[in-house]
Design a protein around this nucleic acid. Sequence first.
DNA 1: TAGATTGTTAATCGATTAACAATC
DNA 2: TAGATTGTTAATCGATTAACAATC
Lengths: 220, 220
Amino acid sequence: MSERVISPAVIKRLPRYYRYLGELIENEVVRISSKELSIKMKVTASQIRQDLNNFGGFGQQGYGYNVQYLYDEIGKILGLDNQQNMIIIGAGNLGQALANYDFSRVGFKVIGIFDANPRLEGLAVRGIEIQMVDELEEFVKSHSVDVATLTVPKKNARPIASKLEELGIRAIWNFAPTDLKVSDDVCVKNVHLDESLMTLSYNLRHRGNEKYSYNSYMND
Amino acid sequence: MSERVISPAVIKRLPRYYRYLGELIENEVVRISSKELSIKMKVTASQIRQDLNNFGGFGQQGYGYNVQYLYDEIGKILGLDNQQNMIIIGAGNLGQALANYDFSRVGFKVIGIFDANPRLEGLAVRGIEIQMVDELEEFVKSHSVDVATLTVPKKNARPIASKLEELGIRAIWNFAPTDLKVSDDVCVKNVHLDESLMTLSYNLRHRGNEKYSYNSYMND
DNA sequence: TAGATTGTTAATCGATTAACAATC
DNA sequence: TAGATTGTTAATCGATTAACAATC
């Protein structure tokens, strides 16, 4: 029951391993060594082996790793193996864009979209009708909602996050440019696009002075 | 000319400082100590002082920091003080959503949107007509383009990135779920939404076993 | 068996935190 | 001046890399 605590640095590298392994499968590669993978991914072989060994031994000495097996195992670790239901709060441009996005290969399904603007009521995105936020409570109580995606204006983000917490939602994917104030029981993953753009701006201005490659992986 | 190299860990915290300082200004706070700010932001005062001192001494002993001054200085460090021009390649849902986003307070202006789909030709987003990708070369040559935002399908991302590099574009904000292959002269900032969602999924599955708070800041 | 490559321990490196003298 | 708080150095902590024995 009490699993070992894995550092966030390791967790955030897993999706990238998963992606590269997926591409290897597409190219019908059956096995790969940490050394070969490290060259493709531009990381060290040591790091790959260390990362994986946090979760168990997936390889075989003298052989390397079976690509399909490793891919499946990482998928399980990330919890992609059974579907999770998502609702989107905020049906503006970004909310609608995300509703149209295909997250099924990450194991997520959008089951509801909400907004406060009555002009959007009834409008359908990918076959899902936009509902008014006052229907949120009823909806959450009658459906299994695993994750709420927040694409509302900054000023509405915190009140809605509190409401979601109250309704028992335990994971929020937050696109509002603010830090939410919720209890530690609620997982929050922030996607701050403006901050991402600011770091790009920094690199642009200080080009040539960077220690590391400009190519910044993940959301860092 | 040769500035000191600043670690990426520091750079990625700057936008968050900037945001908190902006909110303090809104609340008419004139001065703040590293200690007070550290409590608000849930980081250590030491870290704040260390981070800032990479760029110079912005505070005053016994007083703390002048909020407006520090805000402006961080803005300059991030390069937000004069406007940069952005084009968006890929006018799908996400591309259009980003075109509608107001990045002016981050110092960016969208001056062009491109797509390969002829059905989108001439359609305007925020007053900017969508152009066909074959007009890209002409446009880049006759305009000053600082950053290209890539919101194209995965399979098109790499060829277009190469094309952009060829045209002399030196910064790419990449939303396609792939790593681009460009020379080190090109700054690439990746926003991999699916990977972000995967790490949220991980936290959701392993809740209660995390060492750190669920509330993951930045894009990490 | 010999060669290859993992799993894992030890060494290194970098980032964060603590401490405190400098100074407003 | 006395109190507060910075700037900065030193100590700690964690993450990455190197090395190698185990083993397929």
